[in-house]
Design a protein around this nucleic acid. Sequence first.
RNA 1: GCUCUGGUAGCUCAGUGGUAGAGCGCUUCCUUGGUAAGGAAGAGGUCGAGGGUUCAAUUCCCUCCCAGAGCUCCA
Length: 640
Amino acid sequence: MASEKIEIALPDGTVMEVPRGSTPRDVAERIGPGLARAALAAEVDGETVDLDRPIQADASLRILTKRDEDSLEVLRHSAAHVLATAVRELDPSARIGFGPPIDEGFYYDFGVERPFTPQDLEAIEEKMKEVVEADHTFQRQVVSKEEARELFSDDPLKLERLEEFDDDEVISVYRDGPFLDLCRGPHIPSTGEVKHFKLLSAAGAYWRGDERREMLQRIYGTAFFSEKELQEHLERLEEAGKRDHRVLGKELGLFTVDSRVGPGLILWEPSGSVIRREIEDYEQELILRHGYEIVYSPHVVSEELFEISGHLENFAENMFGAMEVEGRRYRPKPMNCPGHICIYQANQRSYRDLPIRYAEFGTVYRYERSGVLHGMLRVRGFTQDDAHVFCTEEQVPEEIERLLELVAEMLATFGYPYTIALATRPEKALGSEAQWARAEADLRAVLDERGLEYDVDEGGGAFYGPKLDFQLIDAIGRKWQGPTVQLDFNLPERFGLEYIGEDNERHRPVMLHRVLVGSMERFIGGLIEHYAGAFPLWLAPEQVRIFPVSEQWTESAHEVAEMLRAAGLRAETFDRETLGYRIREAETMKVPYMGVVGEREAGDGTVAVRKRGRGKKQEVMGREDFVKRLREEVERRALE
RNA sequence: GCUCUGGUAGCUCAGUGGUAGAGCGCUUCCUUGGUAAGGAAGAGGUCGAGGGUUCAAUUCCCUCCCAGAGCUCCA
């Protein structure tokens, strides 16, 4: 039996015969000593495992080195163990929660007496370096539940997790030097491989994410295979910090909040308002061109409406409280759809009227827990660029097609690449299976027809219909929630929506909800970060700033600015301090264009044009040409 | 909501059991400057709000308000 062979299929297609019970490490050694040295983990039949995990049957095998995506996860998981090892060394009484790898790093939760301070993190990081230095081997061991109970008898958190194992489940523990953890694995061969890591922050986190349970102390960190990648990651974090819309919003005077107004409620300063108005004007022009009609609905609505819509039943915890007037209860609206439905129902509708597309920049109010509020990105009052399409089932594909076109046009204008996800029927769903199947098929067909790539989020749809989610990718690669399109079988039913068909019978229309920017607040908050505050000309609150070289040319500078304003451009003059100061000020405020007027320019009717961020590279041009050039750039909404 | 951290001049922040400081900004004056900070003087603060301890609180304690980080990507 011992000499029995099994077949291992390698990624290059070759098949290797090895004794049963060989480990991936054995295979790597047979392939070559270089690979054996570089090996960190392995993928056996698609499952990531340790290098010394014996293989008992024919399998496909891939040796993972630091070049493989999946290795990074293993490394970070191991880094989390190194962290826990260090924390335990410093505080043996620390209880051990969970410590998984996450998207950009890892964390570990600890049950400790007091929260970690930044000094603690430094000390822990130093201790981690010792653990790495010691190069402890990660040793996997399979134990029985009974043995595991014994091993973790002093740690109630681990014991709790242990009790959740089914009897037939394999329970594994991993040891690295002094530290033992209940862990699924896999791990890299030894702690010495965790060379480039950094602890980033500490914060409270509920045990198992349940706010009724004990709060543990979580430490976040990240790890990479090279110092270069680590440094690049830290720089990215720093860059993201510099782009923070709250900081830029303050510096550039875009928006503010005031505790007298209330948390999560945005006040738009003039400069921010310019940006918003430009976007709203643009979008209005866009959607009118795409066949929408503009409507308006009230901010405060009788509760009766939300009883019909079901919001009171399903959305109440997100709604602002009721106010009573003349014995009737009213609510600030959390959504615009019920109002639009009432407009639809204001008249009898014929199939000849459909599709009907109502759009509104509708301001809604939603209660969000105070802890989740965040600048402009998560607020309690915001304006949606909301629209509702009422159409027949047959018209759905064409409407989806139109929406895809609309989305593509709009996102290109802002320079966002995007991805699409189709969210399908969840467990608990309204409407017949056939209805869902048809709707989903319609959505797929349109996407496929256009050759668009998309992910499928199985069961991710709303209970009332499938949806398309668009995710934006910003200038530094972060993802943002973008447009959404949702089919709705629910509200037409609840409100009893009807249209008269060709057959002179009453029929139920389908309803589509869609937003493009979603919320003006969130979208513009995101745009601030996407552009790092340097808005393209058409959106820039101040588009041009004109400086005289010295006071005697102030008049000329004013003339130029006046000319620009007459052409509809937002131009100012600035003649304080020295020329260097004025340039610096304009660069800091990220004004796209600067124009300098001195003796030469005043003499021959030109202006010396400097573009934001381009340093001294200036260009002298005629004033008319300057105006023309800027007009042209605004009109095509150029990104650069 | 919960845990931790913070709230001092318009902004960014230092500081102290004996009623406060810097840089930037602001005002005024000087400077008339050719592409990222010219010089000087000055004004400006109920030290988040309320209560308590104390001879004395911006500082220590309590409550509240606001802000920030985080609150399962399941060993």
